[in-house]
Design a protein around this nucleic acid. Structure first.
Length: 823
DNA sequence: GTTAAGGCCATACC
DNA sequence: ACCGGTATGGCCTTAAC
């Protein structure tokens, strides 16, 4: 029989010592299907140059005798094939080594230490990735699958107890052209738990909420008078866990989405199920969730894609968010305009009868928000999965470099390339230990207020350089050749040098070019005709292109190349400086520049003239490099560093003619300054940039200073928030936020790595000199320290800005110091 | 015991 | 371990007196 099929979940299983995959998806009528499939697993032995055909024959025979015994199975080399391939861009002879079980690829490769073999490769590619490459069953794309129905006794009875409508053994897989036209909306269910303790498994789970659009439910085993349609009372915790699994089976979602659920909800559920000795049968085959090890364990459920939305947002979207943390509340407020319900967390013992209803609502709301965010990010997940060709489960958890690498792996066969290996421990250590290479150039600005500015910047500068000069590991030459690309002079490991790159087409720059051009196309289409799918697709290509440069210098990369990374930056410096020179010579004084941008004064020249200059600059750029207008600005301000008289880099504020502010680097945009200082600075910048002088700003500053002195500042405005980046015990330097974290721990509050620690600086006894000795938690009794807030928050936030107008630090401080003495 | 340099630390820019 | 280097600035630690 034949079906239309869209795959979204991939798992592997062994039967009679061989590997199989079970792919879960839907057909075009919305029925759930499982495709059982397999392929002949293999890896590669790349031969040294000039091995004779006689030697090759002998070698193949030797390899074909290899056998490894494993508990419960025997893997042999089934057959070998001699092929013409490419490895790092070079033509090579390679032996394709087919083996019984892919799990033993490494063990077989280990037995192949023959002198004719240059390298053994591709035994370290994940089985699912390998499967997708071999059989081209692309995640979230429509396929036509023909095959036989799987019977009750096939594959050790996998079909029995598998909750699907159709189970097919694939024979032929064809991708459907124009599959884009066919819509697929997955059934999404969001979930959230509330527990009595934050430590995984330590307390009891009090309630579980679920939401999937038309289905809403809060399960609890606590007794309360609250009665609403969605509350379901259970006998005890064990009963609640089983009912949870029951509802998931009945509702049958494709995606089960949580927020921080890899780190909290799912492991907690698993731990409580174990504690209660019940089975948490969430998988379509009745299996329990499993956890893949990693920096953060990843919770996998057979047949249902478990997505921890936080992880996806972290890697692909956090750079676009204004939110200071990625908490569900902040992210939902920013993206949905909807927030969590107010409920002050407490142990269930302490919850009063009438409060339970609020607690249930709170719990449900978390699922509702998670669900709405998942809907919002669906197109992004879909596009990433389709473009990278990796399952949803993986693309929602991979870091940017992993995404870049997987995109490469899925496209290497188009170049007949054998993949490079993943670096091993020693190699990683070595890479991490190397000296840093020189980065981009940042222009030293002259402090001042400027009028009528233009900003130019390079579009995708790093990518366009990698593409234009064919930079990569496989194009790096040992020495200068005729007709090659030559990097500008650069310093690496203390030596001045240059690198040379071949002009021959190579997979890394070629694939990047493809990404770059496709993105350009979608960006243009999007301008003319916006739609969310195109937007998500354009963004996915953009992120992929932007991460490619970082990938070159990432120690974990298969195609790591310091030479290519350092050369990229040498070109970045060269072209940024060249543009600065040319802009200056054209009669526009350059005010500032950083990496890929240049800001300059228009003076008496017009915008049209500036755009003419842009055209001219572009005509002189090599390859696909391109400079574009970022914007014109009415005014801009640059200030001095706190120490010294030079202009501070990466710190400026601009205003457009329409009055839109662009603030970079100032305390206003830093989350570790108190709100009062940030808001004050924001107002001061706004006033100065709108009005062109400091008059009303100065007035405003004085009022705030008075407010602080009169103790009129609100507690919320003076709280300082700093992130705890590692466990308290690992801090060498005990800073105020570490003290605050310690205090929280003592008070029995949860303290986790990654948390934003809130505190304020209080009035204390004179003998306490250090700032950390004055630290108090928000709820602690005490007045804020007037001297500290004036001298360390309020004045520092504005002194450098007012200094531009000749209001010196001494003047500002001197005036205030006398008054400060009163306290 | 005081002070200044250096280091640790968090955060931002691109 | 999960993209790079450049830069600011606060506060603590430590060396030198």
């Amino acid at each position: 029989m034949q079906i239309s099929f869209i795959p979204f979940d991939y798992s592997s299983f062994d039967w009679q010592g061989r590997n199989y995959v079970a792919v879960i998806g839907r057909d075009d009528k919305g029925k759930r299907a499982c495709i059982v499939d397999s392929f002949e697993p293999y890896f590669w032995a790349v031969l040294k140059d000039g091995v004779s055909s006689k030697k090759t024959d002998e070698l193949q025979k030797k390899i074909e005798k290899i056998k490894v015994e494993m508990p419960g199975r025997t893997t042999v080399v089934e057959k070998t094939e001699l092929c013409k391939k490419k490895f790092l861009g070079n033509d090579v002879q390679a032996i394709k080594v087919f083996i019984t079980n892919y799990k033993d690829a490494h063990a077989v490769a280990d037995k192949m230490g023959f002198p004719e073999i240059e390298a053994r490769r591709e035994y370290d590619i994940s089985f699912i990735t390998r499967y997708i490459i071999e059989r081209k069953l692309i995640p979230l794309s429509w396929h036509k699958i023909s095959g036989e129905l799987v019977g009750a006794n096939d594959f050790g009875g996998i079909e029995t107890g598998l909750d699907v409508d159709i189970c097919l053994k694939a024979e032929k897989i064809e991708i459907q052209e124009k599959s884009d036209d066919k819509k697929f909306s997955p059934k999404i269910m969001a979930y959230d738990i509330e527990a009595d303790e934050f430590e995984i498994g330590k307390g009891e789970i009090v309630m579980i909420s679920m939401f999937s659009g038309n289905f809403k439910k809060v399960l609890t085993w606590k007794k309360s008078p609250a009665k609403t349609d969605y509350i379901e009372y259970c006998k005890d915790e064990a009963d609640m866990l089983e009912k949870f699994a029951g509802h998931i089976k009945k509702e049958s979602p494709d995606l089960l989405v949580g927020y921080f659920s890899d780190g909290f909800d799912l492991p907690y559920l698993r731990a409580r199920a174990e504690h209660n000795r019940v089975k948490l049968a969430l998988g379509l085959d009745g299996s329990q969730p499993t956890f893949a090890r990693g920096r953060i364990p990843s919770g996998k459920i057979f047949g249902i894609v478990h997505v921890d939305l936080l992880r996806f947002i972290e890697t692909v979207y956090s750079q676009y968010l204004q939110s200071e943390t990625l908490s569900l509340n902040e992210v939902a407020t920013e993206l949905l305009g909807e927030s969590k319900k107010n409920f002050e967390f407490k142990h269930s013992r302490k919850i009063k009868e009438h409060e339970w209803k609020d607690y249930f609502e709170y719990n449900l709301q978390d699922s509702v928000l998670t669900y709405k965010l998942a809907e919002k990010f669906w197109y992004d997940m879909l596009e990433f999965s389709k473009i990278i060709q990796e399952p949803l489960f993986d693309i929602t958890r991979d870091g940017m470099s992993q995404l870049v690498e997987n995109h490469l792996l899925h496209n290497l066969d188009r170049f007949n390339e054998i993949a490079e290996k993943r670096p091993l421990h020693d190699e990683i250590e070595h890479r991490r230990g190397r000296e840093k290479y020189e980065g981009a150039f940042v222009f030293q600005p002259t402090p001042g207020l400027y009028e009528n500015l233009a900003f130019f910047d390079f579009t995708g500068m790093h990518s366009s350089i990698i593409i234009s000069f064919n930079l990569s590991k496989s194009t790096l030459l040992d020495k200068k050749e005729k007709n090659c690309y030559e990097s500008p002079e650069l310093e690496l490991e203390g030596k001045k040098t240059r690198f040379y790159f071949s002009k021959k087409e190579a997979f890394f720059p070629a694939l990047l070019k493809e990404i770059f051009e496709i993105r350009k196309g979608y960006k243009k289409e999007l301008k003319e005709n916006p739609d969310p799918i195109k937007k998500a697709r354009s963004n996915a290509y953009k992120l992929l292109a932007n991460a490619s440069y970082g990938y070159l210098g990432f120690f974990g990369a298969r195609y790591y190349s310091v030479e290519a990374a350092a050369s990229t930056l040498a070109f970045v410096r060269k072209y940024n400086k060249e543009i600065i020179d040319k802009v200056n010579k054209a009669g526009y004084p350059v005010i500032y520049a950083d990496t890929d941008s240049v800001a300059f004064s228009l003076g008496k020249k017009t915008k049209t003239e500036a755009l003419e200059l842009l055209k001219k600059l572009n005509s002189e750029l090599p390859g696909i490099m391109e400079l574009e207008l970022e914007d014109f600005y009415k005014r801009g301000i640059w200030v001095t560093k706190r120490t010294g008289e030079f202009g501070a880099k990466k710190k400026y504020a601009l205003i457009t003619e329409k009055g839109k502010l662009k603030i970079r680097g100032f305390e206003t945009v830093r989350r570790d300054w108190c709100r009062l200082a940030r808001e004050l600075q924001n107002q001061v910048l706004h006033k100065i940039l709108t009005e062109g002088n400091e008059k009303s700003a100065l007035e405003y500053v004085k009022n705030v200073i008075k407010k602080v002195k009169d103790r009129k500042a609100d507690k919320k405005e003076i709280l300082i928030r700093t992130q705890l980046k590692k466990p308290i015990s690992e801090y060498k330097s005990i800073t105020p936020h570490v003290i605050a974290a310690k205090k929280m721990e003592e008070a029995g509050m949860p303290v986790d790595v990654g948390m934003l620690i809130e505190y304020f600086i209080a009035e204390t006894h004179e003998t306490k000199k250090l700032v950390r000795e004055k630290v108090k938690l928000p709820d602690e009794k005490g007045e804020y320290n007037i001297k500290y807030y004036l001298e360390h928050q309020i004045v520092p936030a504005v002194e450098n800005i007012l200094e531009v107008f000749g209001i010196s630090k001494d003047e500002l401080l001197g005036k205030e110091q006398k008054k400060l003495g009163e306290f």
